[in-house]
């Protein structure tokens, strides 16, 4: 149940593109054709499924406050979370490179379809964003982290597929000249995002409105409390 809830939440309610605007750069640049969009979307799902659980392990056993206690009592007080940006991005960059090498070796067909997109993915904000949200939402287990990675990837895939299909059709419409290309894509994405907002009531059964902003706020205050506690301890 928990898994299912996270799965739908990551795809529809907290959709990477429509709720948090992550991965917009490649979303706008590679959505002119459905086939290339599918290639990039698949690569994103693939890489996220690998990097989010990996970064979860890193976060749980190295970076978090007290995470080093498995090394012994004297390490329990360390808090390396300020290093998480650099650790996460290094993991992502190396994983992308590794995946590229492995795929090239074992599946040339897949490499030909994903190949050019893989290097692009290292700098796709959706991937790093997935890991950072995984950290700030305090996902509980490795299984859930994997689930979160895959489902956020699927959400991103859906978004790029939808916009690519619309852009293929809109070529035949008479869009005002200054809006052609980028402008109309922005506005369509905005309208799609409004549509996706209606999924907000899906998990609560419509009893209470759950705006994405609010959930972020709650998590942020949770983080803030933790940090404030840390500071108090330091002062003591």
């Amino acid at each position: 149940m928990e898994h299912l809830e996270l799965f739908f939440k990551a795809i529809f309610i907290d959709n990477m593109v429509f709720a948090t605007f992550l991965g917009m750069c490649s979303y706008l640049a590679v959505s002119k054709k459905v086939t290339t969009a599918v290639g990039l979307g698949a690569a994103v799902i693939f890489v996220m499924a690998i990097t989010v659980p990996l970064n979860w392990l890193l976060d749980q056993y190295i970076l978090q406050e007290g995470a080093l206690s498995w090394l012994g009592e004297e390490y329990a007080a360390y808090d390396l979370s300020f290093l998480s940006f650099i650790m996460f991005i290094a993991t992502i960059a190396t994983m992308v490179q590794l995946v590229e090498i492995i795929v090239e070796k074992f599946s040339p067909a897949l490499y030909n379809s994903l190949g050019i997109f893989l290097p692009l993915i290292a700098v796709n904000c959706a991937i790093l964003g997935g890991s950072l949200f995984m950290q700030s939402r305090e996902i509980q287990s490795l299984g859930l982290a994997f689930n979160y990675g895959v489902s956020s990837g699927i959400g991103w895939f859906l978004a790029i597929l939808a916009i690519a299909a619309i852009r293929e059709k809109i070529r035949y419409s008479n869009v005002p000249a200054p809006l052609r290309g980028l402008g109309i894509t922005f506005i369509i994405t905005g309208l799609m995002a409004i549509g996706f907002m209606s999924f907000g009531g899906m998990l609560t059964g419509g009893d209470e409105e759950e705006a994405p902003e609010q959930t972020v706020q709650v998590e942020v205050t949770k983080e803030a409390n933790d940090l404030a506690n840390n500071e108090k301890e330091i002062i003591k």
């Binding site: 948090t20 000249a177 200054p178 309208l191 994405p212 902003e213």
Partner: peptide, 24 residues
């Protein structure tokens, strides 16, 4: 809310490109 950011940027692009036709 999030969607209006996209639409605002879209409108900025519209204004900019209608002032400078070379960018269309």
């Amino acid at each position: 809310l999030a969607p209006m950011a996209l639409i605002t940027v879209g409108i900025i692009i519209w204004v900019q490109r209608s002032r400078n036709e070379a960018l269309i």
